[in-house]
Design a protein around this nucleic acid. Structure first.
Lengths: 342, 342
DNA sequence: CCAGGACACAACCATCGGTTGTGCCGATAT
DNA sequence: ATATCGGCACAACCGATGGTTGTGTCCTGG
């Protein structure tokens, strides 16, 4: 591919060969092999060089795309100055969607999305420089951030009720949390001790709900399958959660109001991480746009609810932007060595 | 790359090896080579298979992108059922922009844009099936379409005047064609006998202009260079022509009104070409949306002008959608053999 | 403690992809 | 008309690449 593009740019096999530091014969053989593999002629050989055929013209932009994809793939893991790498709790949940927004708003930023096992692994990865940021709700009780990891309340996500078409509440537009007392609410796969368990535990306690967080997680599909089939259980999902389900299977999303539970997503990063794109991401998660005031109202005016442990530890207060150390962009932090980032 | 993705999907080297019809050892060596080349570890080897590392997670979507790019590149030239291939007169002119619109409107359509030497080559390529369609103004006098090539007036493009900042007309908002009599208008590189020469020749004759179409074409850059530097010449450009010029160099686009000359772009295709995307393209160039009524008005209400030879030969009348023959999708037409397109 | 599953390493070998040397072809100059 | 030259293709050759088979190591589960 590289040879093909080089010839298309240079117009002559010989010049492309010089460019690529090989002989003209090698270039000729590469083109012959490519043309044989594709079954078409890519260049029209003329007395003064090579011109693209129609097939070659059609092929060229795709070849450039491929080389760009290779470039980006290498850049994603290049030690020293790689793309911004952000951990999300799941690729179909709100943080991933927010990162999609960010990517659209800043197409020039190289961004990679990864998923770590749990919040502790995420914090370790942030401290070691393996990832640049993480969306984790670490303000939960009992968790304590290391000094060199900074967190801000990034954005809040209203929670909705998800039911099958036969559910008692399937036809209502909105419900209040207190009205859900007595209904079976089923959230399998939530490991106790995690941020989710703390959130839904507090939610259940605050409104007298019964939330079954027991049982192993068989994945989203069986859960939705069960929801769609049976009239009894319901589950909570985030407003921006993507459900991949054939034609939604008749599932209903029901807004929760008076108050609306909102899940507080936080962004964590290393205090000394100088990755230039990290600032852009933090700026994107601007204070006003994405966060709801605790105990306040949504944009549409509805009252909101968040766990009590969110308010006292309002983490945005220690959003100090000082960047004291140096970071080699991939490996470990080095607070002493000088040296820039890309 | 393919091996890497196969392992990421399968979760085990052995399964990927089976999938790829090679031994597990070969897969192991491929991964080792890739990891060595990148300088990072892509998989964490566990007792029951292989899990992606963080670098591997970041690498994976780019690897998939690369494989998709390869897939599309091959599809672009695959004999028998390749992507829709459309000829445009220049990549920065309006037809290319319209194809960009079409691509955005139909992201699922595989579309390749090529440029042929002249209208005759385009017609030959359409007849032989090498390309599927062409934007060429072949309704000019003296040109005659073969019976098996169909044309419709695809869209009309208003013409603007382009001047340097020192030009006498640089500050006006609009000019009438008749007001340009006596001004130097310079359009180098237009070969006499082509569709452009016919258009601008008629335009000059209709309003008493002097258009210099002599001189070789040194490309767009020297032309814009001259325009920007000297106070004297001006040139015509299409409304949708892309000028790539560092900060535009102070060039001014001046609308032409009373009447507005519009360039009639046509779409040509082979009567019997059954490529499914061709219909989508023709539908995209719907009758009402893109065409101005000859001698009528633009959307903004201004009167328009088109060469006289456009009106009598209103080609949309013979837009017959019959598809009589069969087409092998790449090579030549075959009006007898049965066989489908993709 | 042993058996089995999964990946890595070693040895071997065919093929691939590079090099040098040469031939052919069309355009241009003499 | 013919010589020359620029540019690409073909042939012969050879080291590197990338596959195979065989074996080793490590972890897990019975």
């Amino acid at each position: 591919m590289r040879t093909f593009v080089a010839i298309a740019d240079a117009g002559r096999f010989q010049d492309a060969a010089t460019e690529l530091s090989v002989t003209q014969q090698a270039v000729s053989k590469r083109v012959a092999a490519l043309e044989k593999g594709l079954g078409v002629r890519l260049f029209a050989r003329t007395p003064r060089g090579a011109r693209l055929t129609l097939d070659g013209q059609a092929f060229l932009p795709h070849a450039r795309d491929l080389l760009r994809a290779e470039e980006r793939a290498v850049a994603a893991v290049r030690p020293g100055r790689r793309a911004l790498r952000v951990d999300v709790i799941g690729r179909r949940l709100a943080p991933a969607a927010v990162l999609g927004d960010f990517r659209r708003a800043h197409p020039e930023v190289e961004l990679d999305v990864v998923t770590l096992f749990d919040a502790d692994a995420a914090i370790d990865a942030i401290r070691s420089g393996t990832i640049d940021a993480s969306f984790r709700a670490v303000t939960m009780p009992g968790s304590r951030l290391p000094d060199d990891v900074t967190a801000v309340r990034a954005f809040d996500e209203p929670i909705q009720l998800l039911t099958g078409p036969a559910h008692e509440l399937a036809e209502v537009r909105t419900v209040a949390p207190a009205e859900l007392a007595g209904h079976r609410i089923w959230m399998p796969g939530i490991v106790s001790g995690t941020e989710w368990a703390a959130f839904y535990g507090d939610l259940a306690a605050a409104f007298g709900l019964t939330i079954e967080i027991t049982g192993p997680d068989f994945g989203t599909e069986p859960l939705l399958d069960t929801l769609a089939a049976a009239p009894s259980p319901a589950t909570f999902v985030g407003e921006r959660t993507h459900l991949v389900w054939p034609a939604e299977h008749g599932l209903r999303r029901i807004a929760v109001r008076d108050p609306t539970p909102v899940y507080p997503h936080s962004l964590l990063w290393h205090r000394d991480n100088p990755h230039p794109a990290l600032g852009a991401l933090r700026d994107h998660l601007g204070p006003a746009r994405n966060r709801l005031s605790p105990g306040g109202t949504t944009r549409s005016g509805a009252r909101t609810w968040t766990p009590a442990w969110v308010h006292p530890a309002r983490p945005e207060e220690h959003d100090e932007r000082g960047r004291h150390g140096r970071y080699d962009g991939h490996g470990r932090y080095d607070l002493h060595r000088r040296g820039g980032h890309r």
